[in-house]
Amino acid sequence: MNKSAETIMTDKPVIDQHLQGEHEHKDPVGAKMGMWLFLMTELLLFGGMFLIYGTYRYMNPEAFHSAAQELNTIIGTFNTIILLTSSLTVALSITALQKGNRTLSVLLLAITIAFAFWFLINKYFEWSHEIHNGIYPGSSELTNRTNGEILFFGLYYVMTGVHGIHVIIGIVILSFMLAFIVKNKVTPENYIRLEISGLYWHLVDIIWIFLFPLFYLLR
């Protein structure tokens, strides 16, 4: 009895050390690979939509051209700058944490999230304006137009909409990372979760890099 109790007592710290110490199972390369695999599926999701855009545009060049004139290039350009800058701040946030500067890392992450909100607010005003003008899928204004224009605006709402959902998911993920850094669950020694969240955010940026010229700069 006494002996087994003693073993348990001596065993416990060993188990704890095993769980928290250097023997804890960590696989940052595997985590990163998992994220990249997921990003490949995202590439296929958006790639498929870009393919549809390409073929419909090829079949309806004039309609796509005239419909694109109605989009707000200024808001589009502004949102491009916002997303590019948010990509910078998330990248800088990772470097800051790697260099051990937690405060700067949290600050840069907060700025990234603020940029993401700013992007969505612009998107809200942009869509509101278009919906106010009667241009939305199924509206009487739009259904009276040519098939090419209906396709253009359908693709515009679906593609920027799905991208917008990704921005919202990005805000949630980056907010979790911010909380993890504050609570010391993501640290200068163990920052893989922040790193792969950054990868997701950069992919959202890359998709916008293609969406922007294809929808807003067709003149």
Binding site: S87, I209, P213, R219
Partner: peptide, 22 residues
């Protein structure tokens, strides 16, 4: 070639993001 220029620039931009940021 306007479309071609836009796509080439988008490819250059995304490869910068991919190589350095990512």
């Amino acid at each position: 070639i306007t479309l071609l220029i836009a796509i080439v620039i988008a490819i250059v931009k995304s490869s910068l993001v991919l190589n350095i940021f990512m």
